[in-house]
Design a protein around this nucleic acid. Structure first.
Lengths: 138, 138
DNA sequence: CTCTAAACAGAAATTATTTCTATTTGAGGG
DNA sequence: CCCTCAAATAGAAATAATTTCTGTTTAGAG
């Protein structure tokens, strides 16, 4: 699983550094979305020296690669979740469990083939669904 | 137009204050989405004394009423746009012109009637479409 | 008109994020 | 395996959006 994401990183021309591997692992094991601060906390336990600017930069880089996806929460922090569609070019969005924070991919999309809406030429769109996952429902 | 939004405010049990009327007017005349800072700039020209915390609070209040809608941009500021569906309970999303910033309502939505996706019980969802409006296309 | 909760100003605090500079390191090429 | 260098990094400091706090004002119900 880690190796797959590393390949995505390489493919996009980014270096595979210990921090980046560790950050991906943090997301794999956390099974939830995390903020820069939360990632930094966990990263600090694995590395003696660890700057927060690197965390911000790496999260942004990983999001650029599609390894992570940005998640909209109701605080003023940026949240990121692991995206299992990384590397694929498949159009998709995400659903997030409001209880446990789990992130999954969904393919439902009203707009995938629409080029114009209300006379606007569509440039991009994003959708986020918040829900409660099956485990949390049980 | 202003009066319509004022009614929405009243209906929700909020007071109709000079600042709030002025803020709504700013959005009506700007015909684009604005940040707290931009609203404050314009408000300061109409009122001698004008605190930025009030601007933040009022934008949040107006968004709560549905008079304004929050718009996701690629900076780290909160953006708000006037919503002409305020007061209606009609399900809708927004399309924003990436050139002039105009905001319009759209009804296209893949999820309106879906209660479950991937086994998740859907709590809420939001979608934003970025595009180029007809005027900017011409 | 009076009263009260809501709205307000202004200053100060908070905090997420970015910038800057010097140092280190991954990985391609010899 | 070593050299090289652009990319990645640490750490400190700066930035800037937003919130909190306190005391004052005001909208609107009665």
């Amino acid at each position: 699983m880690l190796n797959y994401y590393i390949e995505v990183l390489k493919d996009k021309g980014f270096k595979v550094t210990p921090r980046r591997k560790a950050i991906i692992n943090i997301f794999i094991t956390s099974n939830s979305h995390l903020t820069a601060d939360e990632v930094w906390d966990r990263l600090s336990k694995k590395f003696d020296r660890c700057g927060i600017p690197s965390v911000y930069r790496n999260l942004e880089t990983l999001a650029e690669c599609g390894v992570l996806t940005k998640i909209q929460q109701f605080d003023r922090k940026k949240h990121y979740g692991l995206c299992s569609f990384a590397g694929h070019d498949e159009h998709h969005h995400h659903i997030i469990c409001v209880k446990c924070g789990k992130v999954e991919e969904i393919k439902e999309c009203a707009l995938i083939q629409k080029r114009y809406i209300n006379g606007y030429k569509v440039v991009r769109h994003f959708m986020q669904v918040d829900g409660i996952c099956d485990k949390c429902l049980a």
